[in-house]
């Protein structure tokens, strides 16, 4: 953008130089020298090429990439992965397959109702189910650790179902993200 503006200004300067009329500069010698057209900007104009690829941004961070999505939500007392989250799990399995050095931590979560320790168990079931699905789709066991945060790290703290639904969740995190 900035380059484009500079280019436009340079063009305008050239046009201004050309537009200087001989009548105006005729009588005085001094003025004649000063009225010489300004030297044309010779610096090469930087080109913006939108057809080239952007600098290797991680697909994990690209908001337009499904891989930037990390959360799977569950029904009450359930740990099976709902159909709507299948494409997400498949995308992450593919990424793990194609990046054998990538490591993932899956944190399972539960809503606040009931025993904290039993809720660790429920969250573990959820993270284990994601790990199992990723493994079936070709991710290696040593790439993935499944753990549980139980009810201890709620993203929503109201004591009502729409909030609890947000907390019944599995989060897929890559090394460096936790």
């Amino acid at each position: 953008m900035r380059l484009a503006i500079i280019a436009t200004l340079a063009a305008a300067a050239v046009a201004a130089g050309c537009a200087t009329t001989p009548e105006e500069q005729a009588p005085a010698r001094v003025e004649e020298r000063a009225a010489k057209p300004a030297p044309v900007e010779t610096k090469p104009i930087a080109r913006v090429d939108l057809t080239s690829k952007p600098a290797a941004a991680s697909p994990l961070k690209d908001p337009n990439n499904i891989l930037s999505r990390r959360s799977i939500y569950y029904d009450y007392d359930k740990f099976d992965i709902k159909d709507e989250f299948r494409p997400l799990v498949e995308a992450h399995a593919k990424y793990l397959r194609e990046n054998p050095g990538a490591k993932m931590l899956i944190q399972g979560n539960a809503d606040e109702r009931g025993s904290r320790e039993y809720n660790i168990g429920l969250g573990q079931r959820r993270s284990d189910s994601v790990k199992r699905a990723l493994a079936i789709l070709g991710a290696k066991d040593n790439q993935i650790e499944s753990v549980s945060l139980g009810e201890e790290k709620p993203v929503c703290t109201e004591h009502a179902e729409d909030c609890w639904a947000k907390n019944r969740r599995g989060d897929m995190l890559y090394s460096g993200e936790y």
């Binding site: 931590l105 660790i120 650790e145 753990v147 945060l149 139980g150």
Partner: peptide, 10 residues
Amino acid sequence: AYVSFENKKP
């Protein structure tokens, strides 16, 4: 004895 989540897991 207790459980701490300081390592992002119990």
